[in-house]
Design a protein around this nucleic acid. Structure first.
Lengths: 89, 89
DNA sequence: ACGCTAATTAGCGAAATGACTAATTAGAGT
DNA sequence: ACTCTAATTAGTCATTTCGCTAATTAGCGT
């Protein structure tokens, strides 16, 4: 929890790519996996970090888990970064 | 180098606080240190990561090193985050 | 050259990260 | 109940991170 967790989640390229893929719309873990060259378990741990940061939300659909982007948390990170630059708090 | 390095640099609370302090204006390493409870060498390593990411720029002034925020890199990070959210670019 | 202050770099240890394979859980279908 | 597929969790290992203290580098003043 907290903005810390969010920034840590954002610090790995695989996780940022996951978010980029989800930007276009929800995808299952399996569908996401086709875009990466790492093992599914490893990717699953990346998903877990994104969930922990609330950057994604999961919905079960049969045996599949569908991942959705959580834009509001992305906004929070954006706001936090913006606050380092501008004079708005 | 690269946006990767930038996000990694941003992933630690101490380093984000350094940037927040520099937002108000340049500060020496020593002045920055007064705001933290960690040892100076440890803080120095945090500075090094910020330099590596080009998030800060250093200027020597006598025996002091003055750190400046590099807003353009912050903008790059901002843009990268924004691209995860919106449809622009 | 010496000493003083500012800051970094070196070296070390504990803990976290990120990769893998193997094992487990969860749901759907027969 | 059994089996198949989807996905996660457990266990292991190598590497990185981040904290510390000790040692080094850089500049200023005497």
């Amino acid at each position: 929890m907290g903005i810390n967790t969010v920034f840590e989640a954002l610090s790995h390229p695989v996780r940022r790519k996951v978010l980029a893929l989800l930007k276009a719309g929800p995808l299952s873990a399996g569908d996401l996996a086709t875009h990466f060259d790492i093992s599914r378990p490893t990717l699953s741990v990346h998903f877990a970090k994104l969930r922990e940061a609330d950057l994604v939300v999961v919905e079960r659909q049969g045996t599949s888990l569908i991942y959705h982007l959580n834009a509001s948390i992305l906004e929070a990170a954006l706001a936090s970064l913006l606050s380092l630059k501008d004079d708005e708090e």
